[in-house]
Design a protein around this nucleic acid. Sequence first.
DNA 1: GCACTCCTGACCAAGAAGGTCAGGAAAGTC
DNA 2: GACTTTCCTGACCTTCTTGGTCAGGAGTGC
Lengths: 162, 162
Amino acid sequence: MRVSAKADYAVRAAVELAAAGEGPVKGERLAEAQDIPLQFLEHILLELKHQGIIRARRGAKGGYWLARPADEVTIADVVRAVEGPIADVQSTPPEAIQYTGNAEKLREVWVAVRASLRSVLENVTLADLVSGQLPTIVEELTAAPEAWQASTGTKEMVAKGD
Amino acid sequence: MRVSAKADYAVRAAVELAAAGEGPVKGERLAEAQDIPLQFLEHILLELKHQGIIRARRGAKGGYWLARPADEVTIADVVRAVEGPIADVQSTPPEAIQYTGNAEKLREVWVAVRASLRSVLENVTLADLVSGQLPTIVEELTAAPEAWQASTGTKEMVAKGD
DNA sequence: GCACTCCTGACCAAGAAGGTCAGGAAAGTC
DNA sequence: GACTTTCCTGACCTTCTTGGTCAGGAGTGC
């Protein structure tokens, strides 16, 4: 259940484009603004382009820009573009898994996990991030102080956080 | 954002133990009941034991059993025992990341993602799974028909589901 | 024609995922 | 005390993913 560097970079680059508004922005500027290795970022931007999230033009005055208005692009869109499905179990969509016997209800749990992820990722747009006005659901989830704490318990958690 | 085979196996084995009640259950029986490769499962059970989720005894009449009552062991406990932190960004807990400029609010989003995962995983116990009575939050999240559908859009999603 | 910027594929090292194999060490049985 | 049973542990293996780098080609604008 981890967010890869690629997905993180993709969202950050997209936010930067959202903040820039109209004109094309060079890859180099995105890389500097968000401190991302340029050549790696170019591959990511290419994927975002292939998935129709952004557009690009080459040459002097070239660069990248959002294909849609910033308030119509969600984090889920960007993450899916570079990582594929948001919540898979053993590389299979949760509703497609068959559990037997006592584990039968587990499928519903994984479906609920996916739904809860979607409720966050599909409701935050790039425009929200730029403006700093996050949707209610995020405010609610981050309001509790526990939300900001790594859970305690096993040695692994103490070492790696959670 | 995927659930590994290991985590899935771990939960299924734990549910099987919860269903068995008191007496020790052989690894072989768990493997058969849930169709998990035995030798792989043994490694997983060992980790669960090290993390204090289960106990074990060797020899004839030996086997594994839950260290705590089934209604006091959550899916989050089991998943954390074998996978570590439930929601990391670039192998770092979300609250520890520093974003600059336009991406500043992204940290809150990842914290919200973790909180939403916890709201599901920390509220479902092994006893819930065995009884088939899942907590309200899961019922709510799985009630909507969209929750059971892969999202449509990119070619990748059509191919791999979501 | 030249500079600029994106586009693309090849490559690469390290680590994780998903196992298998071989043997050792406790616990119970006869 | 020997034997069986079952867990315990480390070593090993193959494939895939992650997170990049490198080299060069192909549009675009002046």
